[in-house]
């Protein structure tokens, strides 16, 4: 059941991404990207990250894509006859995408047991439950404190400095965006 749901949303995500890259109309690109992000949010929830899944919808779909849509509508970017770059770009794309597809084939068969074995570097210790104690601890925290509580403790204790720095970064971004987009400063 879970496998069916995962592959359904994975297929939807790949379809959305492909259509986003290939559509000529920028608004259509934005809509297909929205469908990809929804599918990814569903996959996040399936992988046990419920808070991040719903934040993906709230932040990416609900805010960032709305900004994209506004800019496309305000600039009135029309659909062009052909948006693609020349043969040199096409060649570079084939090379890069080809390398990534090779990487994909290598990743497909990666199981937790192999991951554990690679990390522990000894087949005797390749038991995922023993090597990944941090994952088990995170699951216990979710069961004990709820979905939000399990992330709150690390965020405000271990990662407090990046959190505060990010807030300063957001302030700088707001000021920068307002200044850059004004007509006359």
């Amino acid at each position: 059941m879970a496998a069916f749901v995962f592959y359904l949303f994975a297929a939807a995500a790949v379809l959305g991404a492909a259509m986003c890259v290939l559509q000529r109309n920028p608004v259509a690109s934005a809509m297909w990207l929205m469908s990809t992000m929804f599918s990814l949010a569903a996959i996040f929830i399936l992988l046990g990250a419920e808070l991040i899944g719903i934040l993906q919808v709230l932040v990416y779909v609900g805010a960032i894509l709305v900004v994209f849509l506004f800019v496309i509508m305000l600039l009135n970017v029309a659909r062009t006859s052909s948006d693609l770059r020349g043969p040199a770009s096409l060649g570079a794309t084939v090379v890069v995408a080809g390398l990534l597809v090779v990487e994909l084939a290598a990743l497909w068969q990666y199981t937790p047991r192999r991951l554990a074995a690679d990390i522990a570097q000894a087949p005797a210790f390749a038991d995922p439950a023993r090597v990944f104690a941090a994952g088990a601890a995170a699951r216990q925290a979710t069961a004990a404190q709820g979905v939000v509580g399990a992330l709150a403790a690390p965020l405000f204790q271990t990662y407090l400095v990046p959190f505060e720095v990010t807030s300063v970064l957001l302030l700088a971004a707001i000021i920068g965006a307002v200044v850059l987009a004004k007509r006359n400063i």
Partner: peptide, 22 residues
């Protein structure tokens, strides 16, 4: 779903790179 998730991540990343180049 470790293998399939990483594979999906690779596919989406390569589609993004293709988009940026094209």
């Amino acid at each position: 779903f470790l293998g399939p998730s990483l594979a999906l991540s690779a596919i989406l990343f390569s589609l993004g790179v293709a988009g940026v180049l094209l």
